[in-house]
Simulated scan of single mutants.
Amino acid sequence: MPIDEDTCGWLGLPSPLEMYRQHCGLLENEIQELNLQLRKARADIFGLIAMLTEAQAKKDEFAGYLRQRGAEAAAMRKQIADLEISASSNRKEADELRQRLGLVRAR
């Protein structure tokens, strides 16, 4: 529908140029808001990356700690096994000595 520019003023309608300016202003405001949101999103992403890096460093540190504790636990299990074998051997020797002592007393 063609707009007669002479009637726009007295009908209270904006001219096409005024509508374009208004639309341009709205678009500029929207672009500014989107840029602010984009900056905030980038800052959030940067923060998340920093948190991830810190978490990975802590994970690596704890993995090393667990490896050390695992090695210590394995050494202790071996030591316990050796002590059990030694205790078993000592029990056998003690039983043999008791038997000999029993034979010597019986004579």
Rank of each mutant, 00 (worst) to 15 (best):
residue 76 M to H: 08
residue 27 L to D: 02
residue 36 L to R: 10
residue 15 S to A: 05
residue 90 N to L: 11
residue 65 Y to C: 11
residue 4 D to R: 11
residue 88 S to D: 14
residue 15 S to C: 02
residue 97 L to P: 00
residue 12 G to P: 07
residue 84 E to A: 04
residue 89 S to Q: 14
residue 24 C to T: 07
residue 96 E to R: 10
residue 103 L to R: 11
residue 106 A to H: 08
residue 59 K to V: 04
residue 86 S to H: 06
residue 82 D to P: 01
residue 53 T to R: 09
residue 10 W to V: 12
residue 97 L to N: 12
residue 96 E to C: 04
residue 24 C to M: 06
residue 105 R to A: 15
residue 12 G to N: 07
residue 68 Q to H: 08
residue 97 L to S: 07
residue 85 I to L: 06
residue 36 L to W: 03
residue 6 D to Q: 07
residue 60 D to C: 05
residue 53 T to G: 02
residue 14 P to T: 06
residue 48 L to A: 11
residue 40 K to V: 06
residue 63 A to N: 13
residue 21 R to N: 09
residue 10 W to C: 05
residue 22 Q to M: 10
residue 33 E to I: 02
residue 66 L to R: 15
residue 49 I to W: 04
residue 93 E to N: 14
residue 59 K to C: 06
residue 56 Q to N: 12
residue 88 S to E: 15
residue 58 K to G: 03
residue 24 C to E: 06
residue 64 G to W: 06
residue 57 A to F: 03
residue 51 M to S: 07
residue 16 P to M: 05
residue 41 A to S: 11
residue 85 I to W: 01
residue 70 G to D: 08
residue 11 L to E: 11
residue 99 Q to K: 11
residue 42 R to Q: 13
residue 39 R to T: 12
residue 103 L to F: 10
residue 74 A to T: 15
residue 41 A to L: 10
residue 86 S to P: 00
residue 79 Q to N: 12
residue 90 N to R: 09
residue 87 A to W: 02
residue 26 L to G: 06
residue 77 R to C: 01
residue 98 R to N: 10
residue 54 E to Q: 10
residue 83 L to Y: 09
residue 91 R to G: 02
residue 14 P to L: 06
residue 85 I to D: 08
residue 49 I to P: 00
residue 12 G to Q: 08
residue 61 E to A: 14
residue 103 L to W: 07
residue 104 V to C: 04
residue 74 A to G: 03
residue 51 M to C: 04
residue 15 S to P: 01
residue 78 K to R: 15
residue 93 E to Q: 15
residue 71 A to N: 11
residue 12 G to V: 10
residue 66 L to C: 11
residue 94 A to Y: 09
residue 29 N to Q: 12
residue 44 D to T: 09
residue 93 E to R: 15
residue 92 K to S: 09
residue 13 L to S: 06
residue 57 A to T: 12
residue 83 L to I: 03
residue 37 Q to W: 00
residue 8 C to M: 08
residue 31 I to K: 07
residue 24 C to S: 10
residue 107 R to F: 13
residue 64 G to P: 03
residue 20 Y to W: 05
residue 48 L to K: 14
residue 37 Q to G: 02
residue 35 N to W: 02
residue 4 D to S: 08
residue 84 E to P: 00
residue 80 I to H: 01
residue 53 T to C: 02
residue 98 R to C: 07
